[in-house]
Amino acid sequence: MKNRLFSGILFGVLGLLIAIGPQTVFHVCPVGDIPMKCHWTARAEIGLGVLIAISGILLLLFSKAQVRMGLSISLFFQGVLAFLVPNVLIGVCGGIHMDCHKLTQPVLTILSALIIIASAINGIYLYQIDKRRNDSNVR
């Protein structure tokens, strides 16, 4: 139960930060004449962040270890995607003194890294719990 609450809230918060952060707290560069790369990165991260937050809420709702393990695996890849979007797939603006480059990108990188690490740990933890339960059922 503790794990359910903790992991659910953790991924919910991280997801929301990824979704809303680039628009607010660590905002990307303002749109000028033409929208720049970071604008599209921010857009893509809204979708990804919401998806991650929803997965987090689902972790809160489901109690079965196997379902939660599946959610963790899915969260792992969502985290990888959230990492790739600002770093590889879309990227941010080139100038290193621009907001999106000096602030948004590192924050998104750290947040997505947290999701990747936390989902991996959660997945392994749940796998072991599931295994232990199966073992004791066999006995």
């Binding site: 033409i34 720049m36 603006c93 080139g94 621009m98």
Partner: peptide, 8 residues
């Protein structure tokens, strides 16, 4: 000016 895309 801010010349190409994204250049300050």
């Amino acid at each position: 000016l801010s010349a190409d895309c994204c250049s300050v």
